[in-house]
Amino acid sequence: MSERLASQFDRETRLRLRRVGLGVLSYLMFLVPMSIAVHAGSSTLGWWGVAGFTAAALLVNLVAMIAIATGWSKRFADPSLLVPQLVAAMLLALGMIHYFEGEARSVLLLLFVAIFFFGLFGLDTRQYLRLTTGTAVGYIALTTWELVGADASREAWLKEAIRFSALVVITIWMSFIGGYFASIRRRLAAQRDALERANSKLRELSIRDELTGLYNRRHLTERLEQESERSRRYGQGFSVAIIDIDHFKVINDTHGHAVGDEVLVQFASILRLQARFIDHVGQAPERTLGRFGGEEFMIILPGTNLAGARVCLERMRASVAQAPFETSAGPVTVTFSAGLAEQRQDEAAEALLQRADEALYRAKEGGRDRLELAGMTQ
């Protein structure tokens, strides 16, 4: 399968398709010694037999490719269909070897070695040994049927015994080696998964505010830039609100910073809960909410105009004002002021943020516990 076609699938599917492609290549490579043997008269297979073997091999791989490419194979524990492909290859090899004799048969026993090499992509030791047993039983059944039917001499039996013992020794050796590589592969996969989880956790910690669990200023700034760029590209506007807890310094000075931290944590929980109910925040509303610094918080509302943002923030403001803030120093009354701004066409994120901040300042100057909207005029 071409790289262009494979690129249409996800990474795992592309990998599985490439493995099938390697299988096709292996079959085609063995056409060389087969053809030489047929030409030299060391095989009764004939050219039509070579063509039949080639067609059967291509058919097996074509079926595997279709099953993998369509996603049908994902219903199985082995979505790469490795074991069925190896069993099919083993049966084809046994059927073909029947038509070869003498040194040609000994050489073509390497087919089984190639088959076992493909087991490195996913077989463990137990599966390898099962494949070894199947190969040994299949080969001894084939040779016994041939020799008994031909009333073969003792020398012929000894030659087949040598081939059989060599085949069994090599496949058993490859089973343990393949199983060893499989265990290494599993350990590496486990380590990779653990590393990915650790990196994901570190990433999450790096963008979270330690006290409230909301996103921190750095992440909010990044999201604001991303939303601004997306808005410029697709023409869908958004709004930003900067929220500031009223008289927070008084709370700290009166009750201490520990109580102030308790207020911040409860305040963040209320905002987070309310943000989940905002229709216009999108598929991940919490990603747009965070602590901007100190007692300031920010919420980014994609696809929301100034009027919609006001409705959302008024609901938040009412929830905060009505919530009982129970602290170690007793109940505390908390309100907030907010400045809202809607992005202007081609407006930079810094300018948008500045307008929201100016609106917040007006809300503070106007008596607090209120919202102020930044005008849309240039």
Rank of each mutant, 00 (worst) to 15 (best):
T13Y: 10
W48A: 14
T304W: 04
S43D: 07
L82A: 07
G367H: 02
L123W: 03
F248L: 05
S200C: 08
E196G: 04
V265C: 15
G41W: 08
K364D: 01
L58S: 12
G122K: 00
F53S: 09
E204S: 10
I242M: 13
I207T: 07
Q191N: 13
Q226E: 14
G308I: 04
G41S: 13
M1I: 14
C312E: 07
T54E: 01
G235D: 03
G178I: 00
Q378W: 00
A93M: 00
S80G: 06
H255K: 05
S153I: 04
L352V: 10
L353E: 01
K201D: 15
R310T: 14
A307E: 13
R272K: 15
E342P: 09
A356R: 05
L271Q: 04
T221P: 01
S328D: 15
S26V: 04
R203H: 03
E347M: 06
N199A: 06
A166K: 13
R344K: 15
I36R: 12
R232D: 10
R105G: 00
L301R: 05
T333W: 05
S43Q: 12
V32Q: 08
R233A: 09
R291G: 08
L31I: 08
R105Y: 06
A348N: 10
E227I: 03
E3D: 14
R18L: 12
L214Y: 01
F292Y: 13
L28S: 08
I115N: 02
A88V: 00
V38F: 02
G303W: 03
I172T: 06
G237C: 11
V320E: 04
I140H: 07
H219G: 02
L82G: 00
V169I: 13
L5D: 15
G213D: 03
L188V: 13
V32K: 12
K74I: 11
A114W: 02
A341D: 01
A37R: 03
F297H: 03
W145I: 14
Q322K: 13
H247W: 00
G308P: 08
E3T: 10
I207Y: 01
Q343S: 14
G23K: 03
A161G: 13
I242R: 01
R344I: 09
A363Q: 07
N305M: 10
R126M: 09
I270G: 06
A51V: 13
N252T: 02
C312F: 02
A104I: 05
W72A: 15
H98S: 11
R272W: 09
R105V: 04
G52R: 05
G290P: 00
S337G: 09
S200F: 02
F117Q: 02
T304S: 03
I242C: 08
Q236N: 09
L313E: 01
V50D: 00
F121W: 03
G294E: 00
T135H: 08
L313A: 07
I243G: 07
A268M: 06
V334Y: 01
L306K: 10
E262A: 02
L289T: 05
A374S: 14
D253Y: 08
D193L: 15
L313I: 11
A359N: 09
M90L: 12
L301Q: 05
H257V: 00
N199Q: 11
L373I: 09
R370G: 09
S2N: 14
A323L: 01
V50N: 04
A37D: 11
Y234K: 10
A156W: 06
G102M: 06
A136C: 02
